[in-house]
Design a protein around this nucleic acid. Structure first.
Lengths: 251, 251
DNA sequence: GCAAAAGTGTTCGGGCTACACCCATGG
DNA sequence: CCATGGGTGTAGCCCGAACACTTTTGC
């Protein structure tokens, strides 16, 4: 079989600030190559697939810290094409500020997902060069004793169905992970404000959170530093770091 | 690449009852073939890997209802051998009472896992024909921004390291799923007593639960039938069914 | 009668939600 | 002064843990 590896890379970027007195807002982004595909690599039978994926990420971005986990393996003739049959997908989270290289051939796309209906979601991918839109149909299928959450590309798009499904699956995995792991911190620098962290949560979960409650919920996970950020015409914020002792809660 | 599929199949069986006045206890089991391996199949490039796995399960047990999900894909030269390189593993849950076929070449092994130390667990697999023991070392590795929960076979055993790791990974997945999905019901018949359901939870989570609290927690997920089970010298129990309406809580 | 499980009720505490309120800042 | 976010406090609610208690059965 012809086996390939690909990666769905999530990151965040700051939105342009229209009102200088307001908080700097974030947006979610994913990475596509020049063919509107998720970056794809050949498997190397001398090393573990994850190592290959890591090396490619390092090569692409000159980055040393990032989050990676295996997302899913697609082994469905429906999605075979001339370049691959089986595809092992890894989910990656990077912080754009760590990037040390000029990225060619790759573009960051702002991703927004809007519920159109009970079972339909409209996805918009926007980059400087290009906009891509598509609609995803989601439904659950009960088969035997298993429940499957299915995604299908509805209509045509510049993105191929498997990539659309992978992006959806990746986002769903992020949502499942965010409350039980420290993935949210992978989007940020070592030091961050609580607002920044809250924005990551809000982007991933796609809902507004009450900041007073968010603060109390995540307080045990973080440590205050003596650094202060003066951002705009409002009270400065302390910088915080992840509290490594909190890891035991997840082990 | 040479790609194979394998399955880690979990099920339960009743323990022998030493005291007729006590509740019938359950034990967790897994399925191994005559070589102490997890059942392994060739991939078929005409159908999705999961379909192949399903068909093999149906073929093996003559069973129509079972739970299946993709567990992990092992693409690590460390585990390559002459028969496979990449291995796509599926997690399966069956109910032994549904089995319609005489099983040859396959054995059900009672599995027990005991903490020996902070980082070591002793696993015992017992069947009528054979006992297998091994020790697993578990540790967490923080690499880049990802935390990995590693398992290693400690010392020698009749079971190969990859199979030991897969069994561990499968059990961990069961533990993660049991509170957020309806997998527990896949171990049981359509109708069951609350005690049976509690036993499934206790086996998977490896801890005793307080039945009064378990009952209240589980009540919204189930529906009482008008069937009664008289088991022994104690109050008979109602039979319950899974409440399909509860599925929406997990979607 | 008694052991054992089925089933009900009560209390307590922690965590989440909603919301009120003060603080600090620079426009 | 005031909009805006930083940060604290509090009251209500729900859920899980612990545990006491009643019911029903066959030995």
């Amino acid at each position: 079989m012809n086996v390939k590896i690909n990666v769905v890379i999530f990151t965040t970027d700051n939105k342009e600030r229209k009102d200088v007195r307001k908080l700097r807002e974030k947006k979610l982004q994913i990475v596509l190559d020049e063919n509107n595909n998720l970056p794809t690599f050949d498997i190397n039978n001398k090393e573990e697939a994850k190592i290959t994926a890591c090396n490619k990420i390092i090569e692409m971005f000159g980055i040393s810290k990032f989050y990676i986990e295996q997302l899913y393996t697609w082994a469905d003739p429906q999605y075979y094409d001339e370049t691959h049959e089986i595809l092992i997908t890894y989910l990656v989270i990077i912080n754009k500020n760590n990037i040390q290289k000029n990225i060619e051939n790759l573009s960051f796309y702002d991703i927004t997902i809007k519920d159109e209906d009970v079972n339909f979601q409209k996805v918009t991918l926007e980059s400087e060069k290009k906009n891509i839109e598509y609609k995803i149909e989601t439904y659950t299928r009960k088969e035997r004793d298993s429940i499957e959450y299915m995604n299908k590309l509805f209509g045509d798009s510049e993105i191929c169905e498997l990539n659309a499904i992978i992006i959806h699956t990746g986002l769903k995995r992020l949502r499942n992970r965010i409350d039980n792991t420290n993935i949210a911190f992978s989007f940020l620098e070592e030091e961050f404000t609580i607002s920044e962290l809250q924005q990551v949560y809000e982007i991933i979960l796609d809902k507004k959170l009450v900041s007073a409650n968010f603060r109390k919920k995540i307080e045990p996970m973080i440590k205050k530093t003596d650094q202060i950020v003066k951002e705009s015409a409002y009270r400065p914020s302390a910088r915080y770091k992840f509290n490594e002792n909190y890891l035991k809660n997840w082990v």
